[in-house]
Structures are given as structure tokens and as C-alpha cells.
Design a protein around this nucleic acid. Structure first.
Lengths: 343, 343
DNA sequence: TTGTAGGCGTTATCAT
DNA sequence: ATGATAACGCCTACAA
């Protein structure tokens, strides 16, 4: 493979000039640039990124760390990140943890090792370096998305989970529902807590008393939504609607309802959260809150670009909150005359 | 950040010894290793990956190029790749093309630029370097998945789309269906052609004549499945079952059927392809062909690791074909007495 | 506007 | 088992 020296020789200039022609063309005479470009085309030259990176102390890689990418929410998020990375000569390195803390720490170490310049986290766990920040030394650039550490001032992007959840419950209450169940995410996640709190807020606003019997915990998967609905039905506490903390669980819950011979929304209204495309094509189409997931990824990447700016030109770490909106489809309807009591 | 020289100084050895302690510990006396490790812990040393890469001419990155990652099929595939990359000290660099050929060529150039050691393609387009291979010079390591170029001997992994599609049609025919429609993927894709050919094969095996009126093209999205079903219904040609070339389109088709007040499977049987999790929780649960998508990703990454081996120890490029299986759920049933004729 | 040269942090070859 | 040292390919003062 040709290198910059070969180009210099063929174009009859010095390596410095070639380098400048490539990175600061304004500093090089146009005719010289032409000669250099001819040589580059001739020798099929491609700058060695590692050599440049070593010199500049920059890898131009962002590490995106997620528990798993095999679900539509995460992949929409990553798509957003890639969208803006691409326009900034940055690349995304994928890091999957499967929830493993060690893996997360290994990924964090990649920043010190110059494999990546910074890290975007869609994770509930925090790397050790944030939990026990080293006395001296600076922290690596980290942006957190959706799930955020309560006591760290990381740049972060999310939606207003609290109000969004309340919005769903208000919609249900507006339809006449009073017995509204909830299927939450893993309750140790701040995001799940926020959505649960929003559910309670919505209840309160409608003057409905909170009944702990009506809330069941899931883990954001289809199956967990199915299981939660089965538990809800078996418990026998009457309810006419259920607000699920994401669309996957809502779809799982609808599946369980169907398996029990119950109709959505005639017997039970079901609402989700996130607005996955699959929800729109479900039978019946799912009422949900639209979460601008791709945009969340884009915003996260922009925050990362900010964090990567030279220290003097760097804006302060900030929190971006993107707008949500309720999407009413056919899985929610007016409260039925008779009430489902399970089994 | 400390470097190998600092470690050498603190541990009282040469840089060469430190380097060996890290990469070939067997060549270093245990007591020396201890001293070195102490120094590493002391100074919080992290080897600079770019420097090592520059020297070894290896980035340890695989570039995974996909049209978009925002769909369950692709993300399952990428998850598989990451699974095995992680256990081989390799990282996956994500490249999204949105179907753009230029983007694809830009990604390919990254290999020459040492940003990645090779490329795994889940793409219908081929990079120019494969279409017009340079007379001299070797081709970069490329593995292709699912969609493959007919006239190139790239290492590749796929399933037997032909037989798998035929299997679905046989299942439908076994249920008594004779008027079986098809919703295909973009017909310029080899994979779509294979699945369509399999559909015809299944028809032939059941002694059913092929009717071009019953095949409609989609683009693998939910909406395109919906639209294809609408066209099918509006065309008025009677049919009692439809075999869709992927689950997304099948789900979209079911949604259209529902919108027209038709029941699945009472009026029309619907079958998909891929076995997305969402299919299992649809109403009704979707009959489909299981495609081992995560495993396809894993196999692709293993082929890549082979291709990255030193030339002398390199196995010949091969094609891996993974097994599929039919999954019968509730969206297919015996042919109804009356036949749906559309509108 | 262009050239010279030092150094980024490793690995690997060749000695010892 | 260990040490000295020359690359790897580029960028960027500094000089001209």
C-alpha cells in the first residue's frame, strides 16, 4: 500500500505538503494540489487512519454501549447515533454488555486505550470509573441516554417519562376507566421508576386511588408483558385497562388477553409506550406514546461531539429533553359495561 | 497517560520486556512479570491500541455494513456478529448505507485505510472493488450474508431460501389451499428471487398451477406488506392463503386483512418468513419459517476470522448454509369453505 | 507556499 | 530471559 511518502515522491513535493493538501487544502497552491491528487489517484493511495490517529491522539470512534441491540428500541437509537456520526467523520463501535458490569468496564477502558474517543451509554449500570472517580485525572467523555445516573452531571438525553406516562393514564381515565393496571419495567431502572411515578401522577390527576395490586413488574420483553398480564388476570383484582411501560410488553399483554379469549379493547384497553412500528400494525393497532427514539440517538451523538471539542470551546454538559406525544389507536376504547375480573 | 516506557522505567526493565510480558508472557520470567504488573497497576497503564495497530498493521475492527439497523432482522444479525467478535478481541464498526452505493464504497475504502481489517456485508449492492477488481493487488477480506453476489466466490452464509419457501407452500397446500398468493421482497435481490422460486417449487410439488396475478412485490417493510395485501384484495383474483417473504410483510398483510374486516385464519391464512419474536405474539400468532438470524451473524463473523488468518493457515472460502424449520402457529388453518375474492 | 525533522507508542528483529 | 533499536505512517512546529 502506498504511503504519503510515495505520493510526495511522485508529485515532486514533500510529505508535509501532501499532508496539508489533504487536511488543510487552503494552505496549498491549487496547482500543487492537482499534482498531488493525480499521484493519489495513480497510486491508489488511502491515508492510514491508525497512523494519523496515533499522531493526533484521536480514533474518531464513539463507543455505543447497550445491553443488547436485538430489539427495535435500541436499534432505532443506534441508527440515530450512526446518522450523525456519519456526517462528522466519526464511526460507531458497538459494545454489547448483556447486562454484565465487567463488560461495561472493559468497554470503558477502551477509551484510555485510544480505541474510542468517548462513550454513549444506553445502560442502567455505571462503569466503575464514574462510581469511584479517580482523585486526579479527568473523566472520559460519556453521554448517557434514557437511563441516567441520578447523582452525576453527565450530558444526557431523554424524554419526560413522568409526564408521558401521566398522559397515557389521563387518556384512559378520559375514556371512563377507573381500574387501570400498570405493567412496569425493571423497577431498579430510573426510567421504570419515572414511568411508574407518571402512572401514579395520572391516577392522582383523575382522582383515582392507587392500588398496588394492579401494578406488575416486567422486564420490557414481549414475554414479560405476556406473563404480567397472566398474573394480573389470575390475581382476580378487577381492571378495565392496562398501561404498559413499553410497546413490547403491551403487545405481549395483548397476546395473553387473546389467549384467554378476552378482546382488546372491548374487554380491556391496552396502552404501550415508545411507538414501535410493530404497534401500528398490531391487531388492534396499539395506542401508545411516541418516543422520538432515532432523534434521541441523534441528540446523544451531538452531545458527544460537543464533549469531544477542545476544552476551550466546549459547551457545558447539558440535559436534552425531547418531546413526546400520545398516539391514540384502536387498542383503547371507552370502558366496557361489565368488568373483567380475571380467570 | 502512562506509556510502555514509563512502565519499563518503573519496573526496571526494557520496553521490549514489558511488551512481551503483555503479549507473550510465556517468554518472560514470572518474577519479572510481577514487577511489571505492579507498575501497570501503579501507573494505571492502558496500552495504546492505535500505536500497536500501526505497528502490527491490524485494527482489530470488522466493519459490518447494512442498509439500516432499525429492524429486528438486521439487529439480530449484528448481535450475532458482536457475540463472536467479543470473544476474539475484535470490535464491530457499524456502517449504515441506506442503500447508497457511494456510502458502500466509502466503507470499503476504510479497509485500505486500516480502520477495519475486513467487512461483513448484509447488502444487495456490491462495492466497486468487487465489480471491477483491480488487476493487481489483493481483494480485502469480505464476507457476505444472506444476500449474495451470484458471480463471486466470497465466503458467505445463508439459509436455503429455496427449500424453506417451498416448505411454507407445502404446509399451506397440505391444509387444502389451492389459491395461494405470494408477497415477495424487492425482486432484484437474489434472496427475493430465491424465495419466489421456492414458492413456485412448492406450488409445483402440490400440483398447483402458478398464477402471476397472485404475486405482489413488497420491500420487506410492514407498510409494504399492508399495501400488497390491499392490492391483492382489490385485484379480485380469489385466494385463500398468502405466503409472505418475511414476517414484517406478513404482519402488515394481517393488519390490512383486519382493516378490511377479514379474519386470519378463518378467511385467509397468512404465513411469514424469518421468525421475528413479534410474530409469536401477534394476533393470531404467525406461522413462519425460523431463520437462525443470530447464528447467521455468528457464522459470518467466524468466516471473517478465518479470512483474517495469515495466508498460509487460511481455509478456502466456503459457503455456510444454516438449517431452517417451519413453525406452525395460528395464522394458518384449513382452507375455508367460501373463498375471499377481494373488495 | 513549501521543506525538514521529531515524535506519537508500539512490536519485532537482532543481539547478548 | 532480556535489551537496544529500527520501523509502522502520519502530523506539525519550525525554518526557509
Amino acid at each position: 500500500m502506498a504511503n504519503i511518502k510515495d505520493i510526495a515522491r511522485v508529485a515532486g513535493v514533500s510529505v508535509a505538503t501532501v499532508s496539508r493538501a489533504l487536511s488543510t487544502p487552503s494552505m496549498v497552491r491549487p496547482t500543487t494540489i492537482e499534482r498531488i491528487e493525480a499521484a493519489i489517484a495513480d497510486l491508489n493511495y488511502q491515508p492510514n487512519h491508525m497512523a494519523a490517529g496515533l499522531r493526533r491522539q484521536r480514533s474518531d470512534n464513539v463507543l455505543v454501549v447497550v445491553p443488547s441491540i436485538y430489539n427495535p428500541f435500541t436499534s432505532a437509537f443506534v441508527e440515530g447515533i450512526e446518522n450523525v456520526a456519519r456526517t462528522s467523520r466519526m464511526r460507531v463501535l458497538l459494545g454489547i454488555t448483556e447486562g454484565d458490569r465487567d463488560a461495561l468496564n472493559t468497554y470503558t477502558a477502551m477509551i484510555a486505550g485510544k480505541q474510542a474517543d468517548g462513550m454513549i451509554l444506553l445502560e442502567s449500570n455505571l462503569p466503575d470509573i464514574l462510581i469511584n472517580p479517580p482523585a486526579k485525572g479527568t473523566l472520559p467523555p460519556i453521554v448517557s441516554a434514557c437511563e441516567y445516573p441520578l447523582d452525576h452531571a453527565l450530558p444526557r438525553v431523554k424524554i419526560d417519562n413522568h409526564e408521558a406516562s401521566a398522559l397515557v393514564v389521563s387518556h384512559l381515565a378520559g375514556l371512563g376507566h377507573r381500574r387501570i393496571a400498570a405493567v412496569t419495567g425493571p423497577i431498579d431502572l430510573v426510567m421504570s421508576q419515572d414511568r411508574l411515578a407518571g402512572y401514579r401522577l395520572g391516577l392522582a390527576r383523575a382522582g383515582i386511588e392507587f392500588d398496588p395490586q394492579l401494578v406488575h413488574e416486567g422486564d420490557f420483553t414481549l414475554q414479560s408483558g405476556y406473563d404480567a398480564m397472566v398474573r394480573l388476570l389470575d390475581a382476580g383484582t378487577p381492571f378495565t385497562a392496562v398501561a404498559c411501560s413499553n410497546d413490547e410488553m403491551a403487545l405481549g399483554a395483548m397476546s395473553a388477553l387473546r389467549a384467554r379469549g378476552l378482546s382488546v379493547p372491548d374487554d380491556v384497553s391496552v396502552a404501550g409506550f415508545d411507538d414501535l412500528r410493530f404497534g401500528a400494525y398490531a391487531s388492534p393497532p396499539l395506542t401508545t406514546v411516541h418516543s422520538p427514539t432515532v432523534e434521541i440517538g441523534e441528540a446523544a451523538m451531538r452531545l458527544m461531539l460537543d464533549a469531544l471539542l477542545p476544552a476551550d470551546r466546549q459547551p457545558p454538559a447539558r440535559e436534552v429533553i425531547l418531546p413526546h406525544r400520545l398516539i391514540v389507536r384502536e387498542s383503547t376504547a371507552r370502558v366496557p359495561a361489565r368488568v373483567v375480573a380475571g380467570t
